[in-house]
Design a protein around this nucleic acid. Structure first.
Lengths: 187, 187
DNA sequence: ATACCATATAAATCACTTTATAAATATGAA
DNA sequence: TTCATATTTATAAAGTGATTTATATGGTAT
């Protein structure tokens, strides 16, 4: 368990969007794909799930899709390819090379040592912090660069969300380690 | 019915916990015991009922069990033994001398005379009392020693709960009689 | 005649709390 | 009409709060 915080980084979820066609017949997709979920009064998109990699896709009539659940950029790409093939199986014309845009990367990390959230709450820039333990056990810290939100827990574990590239998480952790060190809250 | 309050004490329920094995196959137990109740989406434990003594047992996969309903320490012990035998009948290896820990004893008592809960509510330490007659007819009184909660009713009847040993109830009643006497609310 | 109100208590599991993010609808509000 | 927010999906973290069992008490409500 004695690893550097930077080495504990683990991508937990990647959300990405893409446009796979000009329009899509959701009703038809829902009828032809057995495990599809479609309830237009609940939500305007069809939910499709892949198992390997385990990714969920929201498919809209506009031809746009949202992929969630990927744990790596590679699996995200693979998931989009699989989705494309699923639609091609329905005789829908889907371009070969689908482009996507990563919208959010959620990463977990571990400082390796417990931290006192109350001290952090008073030491950090107040308007960047939100800490209401009776509402949620994590302290919410909004960074400007990288522009992410970090949830800090008393155990020393962190969740970095809002990242656009995988490197955002590491940069955020380095900043937080620096901040904590400067305040003498660690080491 | 003119008995001393201390003589009216009656154990109504004893809750105890124990560990009877390292792990238990709840699915198997549920299948082999006819009157077992098991609905893991409702509750993670299997419910087993004994008739003499009438005790209900919650059995968990961790090998831990919870016994409720016993009206005496003796019947509690007997109930645990019966439970052990029931499991042994299923070819599960259960130690001979099972240890248990009493977690809660509920005892009823009768002061023998009606009491005015409104007067008690103002005379007793406010932060130890809760009395909202339109919500519940009993006055809730939290004692520090013994650490129990007593429900007092206008009829003079009491419920002492949270006890760890049978003697807690008697000590609580003696304290309450003393408090009431000092405030001139009885005799 | 039930059922629920409140009390304590253990067990394990669930849902929910927070954060970010896109998509396309609906609804409620200025 | 326009703007805001809710809907849904995934995901981790670590809290809280139900869930179930038994039991007396005595009010109210169905």
């Amino acid at each position: 368990m004695k690893v550097n915080p930077e080495e504990s980084l683990k991508i937990e979820n990647i959300v990405a969007s893409a446009k796979v066609a000009e329009t899509l017949d959701l009703q038809m997709i829902n009828e032809k794909i057995k495990d599809a979920e479609y309830n237009k009064k609940r939500f305007p998109g069809v939910v499709l799930r892949m198992q390997d990699p385990k990714i969920a896709a929201l498919v809209f009539g506009s031809g746009k899709v949202v992929l969630t659940g990927a744990k790596s950029i590679d699996s995200l790409s693979k998931g989009l390819e699989i989705l494309g093939n699923k639609l091609r199986d329905l005789d829908i014309d889907i371009p070969k090379d689908l482009e996507y845009k990563v919208q959010n990367i959620v990463t977990s990390a571990d400082l390796g040592t417990p931290i006192n959230l109350n001290k952090i709450a008073v030491g950090f820039n107040l308007d960047k912090i939100e800490y209401e333990p009776e509402q949620f056990p994590g302290l919410v810290y909004r960074l400007d660069d990288p522009k992410v939100v970090v949830l800090l827990f008393g155990s020393g574990k962190l969740i970095i969300t809002g990242g656009k590239v995988t490197g955002d998480a590491k940069r955020a952790v380095i900043k937080i380690l620096s901040d904590l060190s400067n305040l003498g809250l660690i080491q």
